[in-house]
Design a protein around this nucleic acid. Sequence first.
DNA 1: CGCTTTATTGAGGGCGGTCAAAGAGCGTGG
DNA 2: CCACGCTCTTTGACCGCCCTCAATAAAGCG
Lengths: 220, 220
Amino acid sequence: MSFAHNFQDAIHPARAEPAGVDDTLDILGRMGVRIAYAKDEEIYGQDETADLVYRVIQGAVRTSRVMSDGRRQIGDFYRTGDLFGFETGSHHRFAAEALQDCVILVLKRSTLKSAGGDLERLTWATTNRELDRAQEHLLLLGRKTASERVASFLLDLVRGSKEDTIDLPMGRQDMADYLGLTIETVSRMLSQLQASRIVCFTATRKFRTPNIAALAKLAA
Amino acid sequence: MSFAHNFQDAIHPARAEPAGVDDTLDILGRMGVRIAYAKDEEIYGQDETADLVYRVIQGAVRTSRVMSDGRRQIGDFYRTGDLFGFETGSHHRFAAEALQDCVILVLKRSTLKSAGGDLERLTWATTNRELDRAQEHLLLLGRKTASERVASFLLDLVRGSKEDTIDLPMGRQDMADYLGLTIETVSRMLSQLQASRIVCFTATRKFRTPNIAALAKLAA
DNA sequence: CGCTTTATTGAGGGCGGTCAAAGAGCGTGG
DNA sequence: CCACGCTCTTTGACCGCCCTCAATAAAGCG
């Protein structure tokens, strides 16, 4: 499954940190270890003990859980700068995998907690954000229709980006497993949105949203 | 909607605390204020600021979120002894309502955080448990079938109880809104489980599980 | 360019939703 | 205690959304 040769600190510590990011995060950079993962490589496994936390330096990550018969649910996606692995106190309910080749900063959880002050506040804020997102996800999975789910998903991406053209870091199967749908339904909904001139795909994984208001309305 | 006359500390502080509960929780009892809520009364509202936390002293509570067209998703249920209201750092994504007439201990969040030591650990543990449950819920809503959802739900109740006969604190509509189903589907699945001799309802809201192994298998 | 993987589109079926009616539970008042 | 009325639950018939299966098309990659 994974034949990537991990390496520690092979990436130069100088990062292109966007301006405005809290200085607190810079402290993290000096505390942890950078590890590179190949696409689809596992960062941590389902039911693994959770004494580490992670930050995406480059690339993107998904958390997922698979049932014994292969059905899969994706918990969330993480982009550059995001912290993840906070989901539990002892054992991970979801596994984490690299969505693309990426570089991850790995830290001991205990280090973060004992650091006090800003870092503790950061840990707290991150966990709260996780809960918020999970609850929004619950509503989506429990009560939204297929088109509403896809619209909500795209809207989330639009709101989390400053670019005009947005590129999806994941394939259709990952979208489907996040949204609780099949790949075919996702594809159909996307085609439908495009036919309605609400989104416009310039490539399989690149799109623009000429009509965000309409998209927001569809997302319900 | 609610014509219950709330009253503070009208309930005598002596509680029938089951043995084995952490002493930490007793401290809470001296810090907060007890408030009684009538069935279906709102404890806090969707989008309300979240500077308080709560503990169920008596009765049961649900958290829920409704969409503009009335579709509702229930986040979780809370029984005697459970802490709730930890879902967010600033504003509640879900409202909380009394499932039955109940008594709730209300505390300032800041009090809890500044107390340090055990209480801080308790806050942390509770939040982690919330995340764990939310993630389990995500899998249920995203990937399980109707019968698996109902089986999972009943199994959860069985595992959380020491009694042989379990009674449901909620009606079918609440179950449905928790499971992302309709009331009719829930009812049909229950009838089906009973026909299979996997559960046995002695009343609408009382059941036993003669065959937990089979129930666990169905829950997947 | 050929091969593999991924995405789209179509046809048909099934699970769960919708609509409707009957039945059970339960408090109220005669 | 029973009759009545309300709410909640169950059951049935039918429908529609999404899934399944299958084929084609497009995209990635050597």
